[in-house]
């Protein structure tokens, strides 16, 4: 017999500044402590070593920033009603979290729905790149543009990596859903990788199935096919995850029937990123506007 399902909350948060050097596991522990500090009635696992029932999205590589991280919290069924979903909750959570981990929104989600790890199909990344030299100006725009064109034109992108202790070679070209160089105006005025001035920026949408392609791996594989005498190898100066994408029908925040919460309690909800609507994708917890994302990053470089 199945136990009754626990109510769930989804939190969207940013990770930037000095704390981007913490690991995925570090961030999990930081959240566990923060939730205890705000007395969130988190459900615990059974057994001799009870653990809080929290689940995170795809691990963010250590050192990368993000404006689209997620955490799903299972609440204790009996005490879930104590939770007031309001701005005050976000404020208290922010106060309990270190500078650089900023709560962007909290919303109830369907009980027993798929986990973030299962649901996310792609991520959008911004990558500030440089050439082999130490100065950003060592990489002219046209070289980066040629690199991008070379990667997109490649029929295959072989990448050697470790899987279950063995070295395997995967063709990761199918995982590069989109790749372009950000226009000057877009990079300066809109969303941008925090903290790196003067760099050429790439935007990449990278798939996660069957195995997620990381930005560093994109550069490694791309350097093999697209770098040469004319196109020097690129290295990342800074990386920021901008979005994580799930299939729209798979999960819709706030729409599931739930006796603990109703749709009106949703704190933040916004438009999907328009480019992805026709492909049937949405964010696990969309924000009202991209402007809010970059605002969250202004002046936060520690």
């Amino acid at each position: 017999m199945n136990a009754p399902l626990n109510p769930r909350l989804r939190v969207r948060f940013a990770k930037h500044g000095k704390v981007r050097f913490t690991s995925h596991r570090d961030v999990a522990r930081v959240w566990e402590r923060a939730l205890r500090r705000v007395a969130m009635p988190v459900a615990y696992s059974e057994g001799f070593s009870p653990r809080p029932r929290l689940s995170f999205g795809l691990a963010l590589p250590t050192g990368c920033a993000s404006v689209g991280e997620y955490l799903d919290i299972e609440l204790d069924r009996v005490r879930a009603g104590e939770v007031e979903l309001d701005d005050e909750l976000c404020r208290r959570l922010d106060a309990a979290l270190p500078a650089g981990i900023d709560v962007q929104g909290v919303a109830p989600i369907e009980r027993g729905g798929p986990s973030l790890q299962e649901a996310v199909v792609a991520c959008t990344w911004e990558i500030a790149v440089a050439g082999t030299g130490s100065e950003p100006s060592d990489l002219p725009d046209e070289q980066a543009r040629a690199w991008v064109a070379g990667v997109l034109a490649a029929g295959e992108l072989p990448l050697e990596r470790e899987r279950k202790g063995k070295r395997v070679t995967d063709d990761v070209r199918p995982l590069v859903h989109a790749l372009d160089m950000l226009a000057e105006a877009e990079a300066e005025g809109g969303t941008s990788v925090p903290g790196v001035g003067g760099s050429v920026r790439l935007r990449a949408v990278l798939g996660t199935r069957p195995r997620a392609l990381r930005p560093s791996e994109l550069l490694e594989a791309g350097n093999l096919v697209a770098a040469g005498d004319a196109h020097p190898p690129l290295r990342a100066r800074a990386v920021c995850r901008m979005h994580q994408w799930i299939e729209a029908e798979a999960e819709e925040p706030g729409t599931s029937p739930d006796d603990e919460f109703d749709r009106n309690q949703l704190i933040m909800q916004g438009d999907r990123w328009t480019g992805w609507q026709e492909r049937g994708l949405t964010e696990p917890l969309p924000l009202p506007a991209t402007a809010a994302v970059s605002a969250a990053l202004v002046g936060t470089r520690a």
């Binding site: 000095k18 704390v19 050097f21 913490t22 690991s23 050192g63 270190p98 650089g100 903290g195 100066r237």
Partner: peptide
Amino acid sequence: EQFLGEVQKPARYIGC
């Protein structure tokens, strides 16, 4: 911060 990506466990150098 430009070099912390090169080292093991960079979180031990950030404070915070």
